[in-house]
Nucleic acid binder design. Structure first.
Lengths: 143, 143
DNA sequence: GCTTTTCCGAGTATTGCGATAGGATTTATT
DNA sequence: AATAAATCCTATCGCAATACTCGGAAAAGC
């Protein structure tokens, strides 16, 4: 019903990365424990972590006592990084994306006027998401 | 594939209202002409205009030579007004909405920390959308 | 060798989007 | 009065994506 909304991919991704940030420096953290603490399906979270691993934000250790660790310090990973990996570009409409066939829409009268609106929305979203790091969230949690 | 995205309801709604703003003061504008100028399915646009009519942003005149007119001056209608009507509240996650059963998610560890992030995103989106009126778009189109 | 864990691909139920269809009603025009 | 133009209303429907679930293979500590 409500659009302009994050899917669980983005939400769970941020929650899981936040959880890893809280345990940063404690060795590999198993997805089982992350899933339990954050209230996420473990099997589903596996898929999401695969995306984050391929993007280079986490590394994994297989086998018993294995798990995931952040590849960078929590202060060097922003919420925007995670959202963009999990949900793709944060453009509110397709025609703001890189030039593709989608740009056919932009020849429409009126559309290119409203296009400026969507660009401003995108920029303001990115500004907020890029201003918050995992370290900020971890600090907020402790206080 | 891409979330945090507007559906066509919001985009078409803004485009149609922008079109009505361009023709404000010229009597009822038929959906047929709006749909042609903006490149929207006429029948689908009917449904969207029904939503805007029930919300009081446009009034309709039935019969031949009928159509739609804005109920307020273009300067008094913001893009945010239209988006909120067409897409529902612009909250990126459910738990930011008014207290409902959705708040069950908020007892989760970590979630209430990330909740602050989503609130900031929502506020920045609203600030942008509420700062732009249909008159702004119409002026931009003429220049 | 057993258990724990990541890794991988497939399948699936539900949902919402983006229409389309068909008609009923209203009103200006001829 | 007949016609055409337009809004209004309800229903349906294909498609794609979401949010999982399932089953198992592979790796590594114990």
């Amino acid at each position: 019903m409500i659009q302009l909304k994050l899917s669980t991919k983005g939400r769970y991704g941020v929650s899981a990365m936040f959880d890893l940030a809280l345990h940063h420096g404690q060795g590999p953290i198993s997805l089982k424990s992350v899933a339990q603490r954050q209230g996420i399906s473990e099997h589903y979270l596996e898929q999401l972590m695969g995306t984050l691993r391929k993007a280079g934000y986490v590394k994994s250790v297989r086998g018993a006592q294995g798990g995931y660790t952040l590849t960078k310090a929590p202060a060097e990973i922003t919420v925007g990084d995670i959202i963009r990996i999990m949900e793709g570009p944060t453009a509110p409409v397709d025609c703001l994306l890189a030039d593709t066939e989608n740009n056919k829409y932009c020849v429409r009268a009126g559309h290119c006027v409203t296009r400026g609106v969507w660009a401003k929305v995108r920029d303001s979203i990115d500004a907020v998401l890029d201003s918050i790091t995992l370290a900020d969230l971890a600090n907020e949690d402790k206080s």
